[in-house]
Design a protein around this nucleic acid. Structure first.
Lengths: 113, 113
DNA sequence: ACGTGATTACTACATCGTGTAGAAATCACG
DNA sequence: CGTGATTTCTACACGATGTAGTAATCACGT
């Protein structure tokens, strides 16, 4: 599973938001905080190990991209949570009991087709 | 939020499955592993601090119960995950795209009434 | 009221994940 | 081939978790 720390999450956000790949230095610059590049590289390596990030090693600054989109990743998380659920349907029942009407409507529409 | 370790999760499972409250010794006995009671007590205290468990202090072995049902807790987790989602509806759309037909049917039914 | 066995609280330590970065190795360009 | 940029390796602090010993506290029987 993939539980991220704060900095890891910030880095993923950058990779998710901009569609293009980023180098370690670019990541460091876009993070507000004043971090050493090595710090960013460490984080990126860990994210790579967690299969959250792919690294282009053939170029000279290596370039990093998110393996999955933020939405794909979120869906994975949802399924992970539901995997520990016991009774999936009971959980979903409760869940939709608590969502705003507008969203319920959207879901109904999605389930229609 | 509430991210649990392995032992913590095992203890919660016990409290979720049996509906009654348990003492530390009862918890230790029902966990397969051979743990010291103090270990179990520590875990239960931490779960109490995390608001996952309520402790009845007036009795002499103290008795412990889960604050929320497994399903309630799972729904909380789901909402937590969705909170980091960016575009909730996009995520739900993808999610629904991936569930088995039977479950989609169940959801449709639930959204009907 | 008191001792004693059961229960709980306090303290401690190892391990692991994460944030953080220096030092060393490696690369590519002039 | 040297040199600046980049990457790798190593290290350490800190918090969460698993694990348990020791000390404190409680309640019951006599």
């Amino acid at each position: 599973m993939a539980t991220l720390g704060g900095l890891e999450r910030s880095v993923m956000s950058l990779l998710w938001d901009g569609a293009e790949s980023l180098s370690a230095n670019e990541v460091r610059d876009r993070l507000g905080e004043d971090l050493a590049v090595t710090t960013v590289l460490t984080v990126l390596s860990r994210l790579e190990r967690k299969d959250m990030v792919r690294r282009e090693r053939s170029t000279r600054p290596h370039r990093y991209t998110a393996v999955a989109s933020r939405e794909e990743h979120t869906v994975e998380m949802l399924n992970e949570v539901l995997g520990t659920a016991g009774d999936r349907e009971a959980v979903l029942a409760r869940f939709i009991g608590g969502i705003p009407d507008s969203e319920a409507a959207a879901l109904r529409r999605l389930l229609q087709k």
